[in-house]
Every structure is written in C-alpha cells, then in structure tokens.
Simulated scan of single mutants.
Amino acid sequence: MTLPQNGNGATNQRPAESRQSRGETGVSQDTAAASGSGSDTARQMANEAKFDKVQDLLKGHSGESAVSPEILRHVLTRVTDEGLVIELFDLEDARLFMPESPAPTPLLRQLAQLVVTAAQLVENEIAIEGHTRARPVVVQVNPVWTLSMARADAMRNLMQDAGIRSDRMSRVTGHADREPVLSDKMALRNNRLEVILLRSDD
C-alpha cells in the first residue's frame, strides 16, 4: 500500500534482508570501477559526504543540536543503494504511537524534529515507510496494512509541520508486518518508521 535493538544513534551497516532493491552499505569500489564513469563516482562520493554529515548529527557528534541519549536510543541509521535510512522504533518503555493508533506520542514528535533538523542539512528527496509488528492469526480484523500506512503518513505530516518542504516528499508507504527486523514477527521492535534520504543524481 502506497499514498535491531536499542539504537544509541548507532550506524547499522546491515542492509534490510527482505529488500531485494537495496544492496550493501554504500557502493563498492568494484562497482564504481565497473561503471567506468568518473561522474558517477563523483556523485556517489558527494552522496556519501552528505550522508556522513546527517549521521554525525543523528549520533550526537554534531554541534548543530544537543541530542538526548533517551532520544538517540530509538534511532538507527544505515546507508544502502537507495539512500540513507533513518530508522525510528518502539521500545518496551517508550512508544512512537499510541497503542493501535496512528496518533504520535510526544516521543515521536521529538524524534520528528530531530530527523527534520538532520534532513535540512541536505536537499535529497525523502521517502517514509511504516512497519508494524504482526498480530495473532486469530484476530478478526487485522489492522496492519492501514495502520502502517497511517503511521507513515502521520510522520510525513510531523516532518512537514516542522519545516520540511512538501515537494521533497517522494513517497509514503505502508509495509504492514511483511518486513520484520526480528524473527519474532510479533515483537514490539518491529513497530518502526524508516525515513529515507534518497540518493540524488546531481
């Protein structure tokens, strides 16, 4: 439908295993050499430099903002072929949304402001993806598709309200429970948002 544990602001070099469209972190030297294009390599290097700057802020290594460790533990980043993925996720003692709802908690509002501060360091287009944990197969009405989409769209609204231009939004997608990060598909940790700063062509 379109419209792993505590982060501590860490960088996760593992790409999402369920994404065939995403490869290993960054672009390998072999791949760059095979392209035979100096301009392609220059674009790749420019993207990596932009992403490094964003990640520094999200890890609390930048002077742009003071980031609380309580906020950073909900954040993981990884660089993929698609771009810089900023993953925001639930923890047992702190949730991004109200239970079974797309209504953001104060925590998510703070995280959205942090992501916007980071995203404003660059001009890349943005994709937002919502994911939810699985429900027992016995539930009569399974909300995972509509809930993941509504939560992704709620994040879009929060980011735009915080200053991100609407024309930077490339897509908003709900993946339901189809791409869990833990083998236990009903684990709370599978409730997450991914904000992706997409690679630019210039």
Rank of each mutant, 00 (worst) to 15 (best):
L58C: 05
K59S: 15
K59F: 00
H61N: 15
S62V: 12
E64F: 05
S65F: 02
S65Q: 13
S65H: 02
A66E: 11
V67F: 11
P69A: 13
E70R: 13
R73I: 08
R73Q: 13
R78G: 15
V79K: 11
V79T: 10
T80V: 04
D81L: 12
E82G: 07
E82F: 00
G83V: 05
L84F: 04
V85M: 12
V85G: 01
I86G: 03
I86K: 07
I86V: 08
F89D: 03
D90V: 13
L91E: 10
E92S: 10
D93N: 13
A94T: 05
A94I: 00
L96G: 03
L96W: 11
L96D: 08
L96V: 11
L96N: 11
F97M: 01
M98E: 12
M98Y: 12
P99C: 02
P99M: 06
E100V: 12
E100Y: 07
E100H: 01
E100L: 08
P104Y: 11
P104G: 13
P104R: 12
P104W: 08
P104D: 10
T105A: 03
T105S: 14
P106C: 06
P106H: 01
L108G: 04
R109M: 11
R109H: 03
Q110C: 00
A112K: 09
V115A: 13
V116C: 08
T117I: 01
L121H: 08
E125V: 00
E125M: 04
E125W: 00
A127N: 05
A127I: 03
E129F: 12
G130F: 14
G130L: 02
H131P: 04
T132C: 07
R133F: 09
R133A: 15
R133L: 06
A134K: 10
R135G: 02
V137A: 15
V137L: 14
V138S: 15
Q140Y: 11
Q140V: 09
Q140E: 13
N142C: 09
P143M: 04
V144L: 03
V144Q: 14
V144N: 10
V144H: 07
W145K: 14
T146G: 07
S148A: 07
S148K: 06
A150D: 10
A150H: 03
R151G: 04
D153Y: 06
A154V: 05
A154E: 02
M155W: 03
R156Y: 00
R156K: 15
R156L: 09
N157T: 11
N157S: 06
N157I: 09
L158N: 04
D161S: 12
A162P: 07
G163R: 00
R165H: 03
R168Q: 04
R168T: 02
S170P: 01
V172G: 00
H175L: 12
A176Q: 04
D177W: 05
V181F: 07
L182R: 15
S183H: 14
D184H: 10
K185D: 13
K185W: 12
K185I: 12
K185S: 15
M186R: 13
A187N: 14
L188W: 07
R189I: 08
R189N: 06
R189G: 05
R189E: 13
